[in-house]
């Protein structure tokens, strides 16, 4: 019970830091922390075997999303032409 409270508070604090940070690129690590914390709280909210599946899906999805944002922001793959 206390673990869930800690994880949820961490998620909320890091969400504030995401918003407070002005630089777009520096927002992304904080966003990653939020998504890690949310993954943990999903598992702690409903301890059930199927929740692992949802956690894995959310983890993969959020990582892919922030990777795609970072990759596009930095200009994508350099084309040789």
């Amino acid at each position: 019970m206390i673990a869930l409270a800690v994880v949820a508070i961490i998620a909320a604090l890091e969400a504030v830091r995401v918003v407070a940070e002005r630089n777009t690129m520096r927002k992304l690590p904080y966003l990653n922390v939020v998504s890690f914390a949310i993954t943990g709280s999903l598992m702690l909210l409903l301890p059930h075997p199927l929740t692992i599946l949802a956690c894995a899906a959310y983890f993969v999805g959020s990582t892919l999303e922030s990777n795609a944002i970072a990759s596009t922001w930095s200009g994508g793959i350099r084309k040789h032409e």
């Binding site: 966003l31 959020s62 922030s66």
Partner: peptide, 9 residues
């Protein structure tokens, strides 16, 4: 980035 924060919540 904010939108993905919204989805996380």
């Amino acid at each position: 980035i904010s939108l993905s924060l919204l989805a996380a919540g």
